[in-house]
Design a protein around this nucleic acid. Sequence first.
DNA 1: GAGCACTGC
Length: 672
Amino acid sequence: MSKYWKPGSERPRTVLVDDEEGGVLFLSSPPSSSGFGHSSLERQRQRLPVYKYRTAILYLVENHATTIIVGETGSGKTTQIPQYLKEAGWAEGGRVIACTQPRRLAVQSVASRVAEEMGVKLGEEVGYTIRFEDQTKPNVTKIKFLTDGVLLREMMDDPLLIKYSVIMVDEAHERSLSTDMLLGLLKKVQRRRPQLRIIISSATIDAKSMSTFFHIRRRNIGQAAEDPTPSELPAILSVEGKGYNVEIHYVEEPVSDYLQAAVNTVLSIHDKEPPGDILVFLTGQDDINAAVQLLTEDAQNNGLLVLPLFSGLSRADQDLIFSPTPKGKRKVVISTNIAETSLTLEGIVYVVDSGFSKQRFYNPIPDIENLVVAPISKASARQRAGRAGRVQPGKCFRLYTEEYFVKEMPAEGIPEMQRSSLVSCVIQGNKGESGGLNDLRRNQNTQNELKLKALGIDNILGFDWLASPSPEAMIRALEVLYSLGILDEDAKLTSPTGFQVAEIPLDPMISKMILSADTYGCSEDIITIAAVLSVQSIWISVRGAQKEFDEVKLRFAAAEGDHVTYLNVYKGFIHSGKSSQWCYKNYINYHAMKKVIDIREQLSRLLRRLGIVLKSCERDTQVLRKAIIAGFFAHACCLEEFSPNGMYKTIKSSQEVYIHPSSVLFSELLGI
DNA sequence: GAGCACTGC
């Protein structure tokens, strides 16, 4: 890569260097051929804050194994950096530049934006891969956007990610389960492949801990001499964002009821502030519906258009959020965290931040995950406030005191890795290590096998996590997998069960259920159940029609419980000719059902590859239940005798549990 | 009588 340096030129003196003072030129793309300065797209590209760091970024990537880029939203880093890298020659010689995102939607939209800017057809030179959709062409695609989950999957077949020259992990500050997994494994890949460049892009300043993590000391492994290895010390560069200023307001005294306080704040904004839409962050559906009701009932607010927003809403209801605000009205969107990162609303000028969100916590002792309302972090609070400054200067009203924000609010949230069951991660790690069946078959050569072993997680307890999960959580994960027959006494994948489970992209308990179904002769039915279990919810959440919803649901209800009920819904959907109208009438989420069809299709292809013949048990739900138990026996529980309120206790740890009100068995319990 | 948000060949 050094050929892109102007010979004899002075190297940049500081990290924050730009073209003029650095004296560094990249000659790979002459101004005329790359079209600099002519089209309006090109001018737009140059106006992005990241543009003036172009040279610095290329210099750092050239000379450091890992570069950490701290950039606020709107800096243009996601769309521009992959293009800079390509212009500098990182995609030459059949190599690919990868850029990962935590969400599918982001992958698609960023890829199409970049293809447009480069004037190429999406899916050729610029492509993307998400589950169920591969828009790339081998040997043609040079810049590839993908979800971090997909890259993790790719590592199973290609543990050293040989085809990539640079991997940019975007939105790393979100610290999702798969981002953390990916970063842990990438660190290992880098030890074996020092030429691989990693760019970590994050919105928060906490780059220090990332930097410490990636400061690897390489073992001497005899690198090819003509390629000088880059510095092991990660470089950090920060790029300013493009958002407008947001004025922060705090309450003077702590509020006791954030729901009422949020409602009052909205009313006071409407009363005193100039036009502009309002976004309110609350915690969940209950809160949101209550606030919507309070605001709609209030007689003095005819000028307010109040809309709820959460993921359980039907697509049509979600789309209302994006419709233009009627003249003379002020739109108020009351939302969960979905509006913090996943959805961007234009036209928001005021944000009301309750300071809370619902978060998942995992207790490894009884092996139970809980959803609890908990205080958010400073990073979240800043992200929420930023939502007010996208189109013009805005205001953010925080329903907590400034003292609380400064002194008590944690800087970062707890990474998901430390809040979840690790059952899926252990499998992924093990698979990444051994490379799985495909690699065992393909990589007969000793050198490759050595590389694979070196990469892997021989010992899950000793794996180098970015944020280490609790020992209890790791032990519990190993225990569950051992009891399912997926890991052996040495915590290695068993053959064939363990390897087959690793091949199936679902929760290991579900995968085990599928494999058992083969023995019981009901795989055809079980994969339908597995597909439904892997989507959010197939039911639509309805406001004000709860009774009707329950009645309709009973039409599908099976005495055997929810799993067989899902099977009934699926059959009904197929029978209707996959009709969206049918879904609407039956309070079923059409998009979820389409996803069920996709996942089911994927599973049936996969099982065929694993040599499993699909077979239906027809009406024999007995075998169906046996297969379910084979995967979920760890969750078995027993109804307490004489319990007036239907209390169960888990077999394993005598934990008190109850049937969830959304279950079809719940109404049976009430005798409806 | 209840469902933060994501994701996977």
